[in-house]
Design a binder for these strands. Sequence first.
RNA 1: GUGGGCGUAGUUCAGCUGGUUAGAGCGCCAGAUUGUGGAUCUGGAGGUCGUGGGUUCGAGCCCCACCUCCCACCCCA
Length: 449
Amino acid sequence: MKCSIPKGTRDFLPAEMARRNYIFDTIRQVFRSFAFEPIETPSLENLSTLMGKYGEEGDKLLFKVLNSGDFMEGVDFGQDYRKVAAQICERGLRYDLTVPFARFVVQHRDQITFPFRRYQLQPVWRADRPQKGRYREFYQCDADMIGSTSLLNELELVQMIDAVFDKLGISVTLKINNRKVLAGIAELIGAPDKLTDITTAIDKLDKISLDDVRAELRDRGLSETQITALDPVFALSGPAEEKLAQLAQLFANNAVGTRGVEELKELFGYIALVQPRCTVELDLTLARGLNYYTGAIFEVKAQGVSIGSICGGGRYDNLTGIFGMPDVSGVGISFGADRIYDVLTELDKFPPDLGQPAQVLFINFGAESMPYCIRCAAQLRSAGVSALIYPEAAKMKKQMEYANRCHVPYVVFVGENEIASQTLTVKDMATGTQTTVTPDQLLQEILHA
RNA sequence: GUGGGCGUAGUUCAGCUGGUUAGAGCGCCAGAUUGUGGAUCUGGAGGUCGUGGGUUCGAGCCCCACCUCCCACCCCA
């Protein structure tokens, strides 16, 4: 039979896992250093938890799971497929980690101390068509703080982004904007209900021309005067402080916009204090599709690699409100581990010495030497050194080739002489040099290498 | 969901305007080399040419459908 895996999913070989774990370990280390605690949530959520949280597109991209048993009972299959789906699928695979986290907070509020900081490294699923940097199953690495409106949280997220990509050796640009500013702009031109249309159109400004954005706004139902009214926004220029000063004037009579500008001023003030290594920009064209963001929004792009954003996030003021716990603000970021993997691969920035199954391989010369080998291997392992006895008394060449291919740095030979003298003949596979030492000496050499 | 490209050995690919028995590099297995890997040499195994249908005396090659992977759009990590 022919075997395969579903479209957009992947197997990971040991060498890939070593690299993936390097990314996960780096991110986890940074999260912990900022006092975040881990949680996990189930792959499956009730669809009622997920539907309607990600916009119209998001609902389409949700993987829905068919009910168990006779899912056809009492269902009218003559109606619209979406209505049928709603009746025969009660659960779906999670689309991101933020919405399940909001559900988690509401459900476990009695066991959580606020402000609560959690991190979560788990796969999410989207029924998207796969392409470069886009998978149907991929890992997100989220850190969120909930129960605090302080912009110090935003600052810490910026510092974490800076720390992670600095450790990974990726040069990145962090783009920051604020949804309140975008909302202010929408109000300013008299189209507050068109906020989503305006933001998604403006979001494309780095891909398509200003005229094309205007055309798209026209298609989305904005009048010519409204589109013209956006011109001062497109005309903004200069460093963050200048843009914000210009915006503040535009928003003289607009409360939401003014609040957004104030938040950005405060955040950029903090950022100036910490001097991040990455490039930080105020990008008023940054919108982000997820419609639950209400304040700061973040997006990170790798410099010199044409792949989508590798990290994104923002503040959401009322995500828990949907689940019956209003007035709890949260802010968080999500690192896209798979895209970071692709970036590191393209830039050839992975450390070269990742993934080495065994540090020591004992060559198998037959049953007589096994008791001694077993004892020595056990001693190495209990000291934290990974050791392996070749399971068959195969030809030397085969065993050596195995060691070579698995990148085992030390190969041990045990024959009559070694057993008699309670020593090991050790070959350093990189240099080819061979020495006879006691098991203790080998241990010390490896531990201090 | 829309549009484009690809699919031949484990893998990367070649295969002429349609014409005998579909090739190469790498990898794999064995040997040269019975306590020493990477290098070299020799030999060997391995393919329903993505799947199904059609055109033809004859299809890896042409036509249709489906599938996969890749790329772009939409959207996003």
